[in-house]
Design a protein around this nucleic acid. Structure first.
Lengths: 107, 107
DNA sequence: GCTTTATGCAACTTTTAGGTTGCATATTAT
DNA sequence: ATAATATGCAACCTAAAAGTTGCATAAAGC
C-alpha cells in the first residue's frame, strides 16, 4: 500500500465525510453512506471505490445490500506516518540544539 | 483551513518526498528541494505551491533564493484529525460492548 | 409472478491536476 | 558591464478525477 494513495483518498470532502460517518456508526450500507453527499448514488459509489482501493474501507455483500465498514488499520498507519515525520523533525531540532550547546559550554 | 485540502496536498509522491526532506534538513531552497524528483524545476515549483496553499510549508525570500520551511502545525493538525477519528471509532465500540454486557449481567 | 429495492457497470462530459516549454527578471559573482 | 544563478509566470498539453445519465440485474416483499 502506497502512503500517498491513502492521503489522496482522504483528500476529498465527500470521502472524508463517509469515513467520518463510519467512525460513528458501522456497518452501514452503500445506500446509507451515499445519501446526503450532494451527488448521485453512482457518484458516491465511485468515491467508495477510491476508499476501498486505498484499503480504508471494506465491503461485504449481504443479500441484496452491501455493508461498508472502516479499516481502522489503514487510518492508524496514516497517523503513524505523520507521527514519524513529526518525530524526525524535532529530533533534528534537538540534535541541532545539542550541537550548539556543545560549542558554548557555559550555556 | 480545509482538512481535506491538507490530506490532498499530502496525497502525491513528489509532495510527500519534499515534506519528508524538510523534516530531515531545513530550511532548504526551492532549487534544492526541486532536484531529483524526476520532473522539471517548474513542475516541482507547482507542487510546492500546492503545499504552500495547504499551509504545510512556508516560503521566505532570501536574496535571489527562496527558503522553504516546514509548517509543523499543519502536520500536527492532520495527525490529530486522524486521531480523533480513531477515538470516535473505538469509543463507539466500547459503548457497544458496555451495552451488550448490560443485557447479559452474568457475562 | 410482479414490483420494489439495492445495487452494478459503462459511456460520456467537464473540471482539475500534473507536467512541459519558453521567456522574463532580479540578484550575485567575475 | 557581463554572465551566471535562482527564481517567477503564462500558455499549453495530456491524463486523471469527479460526476452524470442510462440501462442491467439479483434479492426481497407482496
Amino acid at each position: 500500500m502506497n502512503q500517498a494513495q491513502v492521503f489522496k483518498a482522504l483528500g476529498d470532502p465527500a470521502r472524508l465525510t463517509m469515513i467520518s460517518r463510519l467512525t460513528t456508526a458501522e456497518p452501514q450500507t452503500i445506500g446509507e453512506l451515499s445519501a446526503d453527499l450532494g451527488m448521485s448514488r453512482q457518484g458516491a459509489r465511485k468515491q467508495l471505490k477510491v476508499l476501498e482501493s486505498a484499503q480504508l474501507i471494506q465491503l461485504r455483500q449481504k443479500g441484496r445490500q452491501t455493508e461498508v465498514s472502516l479499516a481502522v488499520d489503514q487510518l492508524q498507519q496514516a497517523r503513524r506516518f505523520i507521527e514519524r515525520l513529526e518525530q524526525q523533525w524535532d529530533q533534528r531540532l534537538h540534535a541541532l540544539k545539542t550541537l550548539v550547546e556543545g560549542h558554548q559550554p557555559d550555556d
